[in-house]
């Protein structure tokens, strides 16, 4: 693979909390435009891996490169800036309930523009407000632009969280069980939307799911962790049901 196309490079990554080693020498690379499903038991280290990728947690050893930037070498400020390249979607939407939908989306720009005008949509520059509205339209929710985030359903909130991530103009989206707190239908809709948007915009997507159907349908490659070790790294076409079953034994 050509080096220009490399979005993410995780190399020999280990992470311990005290004496417990949660990640054990994980290595893999992700190319631009890939959609990757990350599977594994509860507690196998998936969220820890995500947190290390954005340097929200400092790895114990190994290194992370996101589009050529070595996160371990960045100053605090540069690190904040670099995080704009990574859009995070959590199991819980993590919107600020008491603020409007538009304000929440505009917050996606806070890493690169710390201006206080971005705190509340009422004061934000027109171009940004319009951009936020366009993103809201992209996730199918232009009609709720005037609502507070706290008034939305689970599925709607998760869509707004996706719009907020897109506001960052990220190169990579990390989605940690984005559908786990949604009902099956809303969950599938959100996953479909996330996948489609990522493909359309050429954004690399890595998502954690316990839904094997989603993993097979919305990825071109499957990674799996077992007790902190990377045990599967295969193209989705080649994966077998048996291999997936061994993860959950």
């Amino acid at each position: 693979m050509s080096k220009d196309n490399l979005v993410l490079n995780v190399s020999n990554l280990s992470k311990s909390f005290g004496d417990t080693e949660v990640l054990k020498g994980v290595s893999f690379s992700v190319e631009k435009g890939e959609a990757i499903a990350l599977l594994g038991h509860n507690g196998s280290g998936k969220s820890t891996l995500f947190n290390c990728m954005a340097y929200l947690l400092e790895p114990t050893s190994g290194f992370i490169r996101v589009s050529e930037l070595d996160f371990s070498k960045l100053s605090k400020k540069a690190l904040r800036n670099a995080r704009s390249k990574i859009g995070f979607i959590f199991q819980k939407h993590n919107l600020v309930n008491r603020l409007g939908v538009l304000s929440n989306i505009i917050h996606g720009k806070l890493s690169t523009d710390p201006s206080p005008r971005l705190w509340f949509q009422k004061f934000a520059p027109s171009a940004l407000r319009l951009k936020a509205l366009n993103l809201l339209e992209k996730v199918g929710l232009a009609h709720i632009a005037g609502k507070l985030a706290g008034q939305l359903s689970g599925g709607q909130s998760q869509r707004v969280a996706i719009a907020r991530a897109l506001m960052q103009e990220p190169e990579l989206i990390l989605a940690d069980e984005p559908t786990a707190s949604l009902d099956p239908q809303a969950g599938t809709e959100v996953m479909e939307l996330l996948y489609k948007l990522a493909q359309d915009e050429g954004i690399t997507l890595v998502f954690v799911t316990h839904n094997v159907e989603h993993a097979l349908k919305y990825s071109n490659r499957i990674l799996a962790l077992k007790a902190g070790e990377l045990v599967i790294d295969k193209s989705t076409k080649e994966i077998t049901k048996e291999e997936i079953d061994t993860l959950y034994e």
């Binding site: 954005a54 959590f90 993590n94 600020v96 309930n97 008491r98 603020l99 917050h107 710390p114």
Partner: peptide, 24 residues
């Protein structure tokens, strides 16, 4: 949750305080 989300976005301390902590 929202505080963690804004950290992940790369928002600074003041922004996080004003956008997530104080509104909540």
């Amino acid at each position: 949750g929202p505080v963690k989300a804004l950290n992940a976005i790369g928002a600074g301390k003041l922004s996080t305080l004003m956008c997530a902590v104080i509104p909540s």
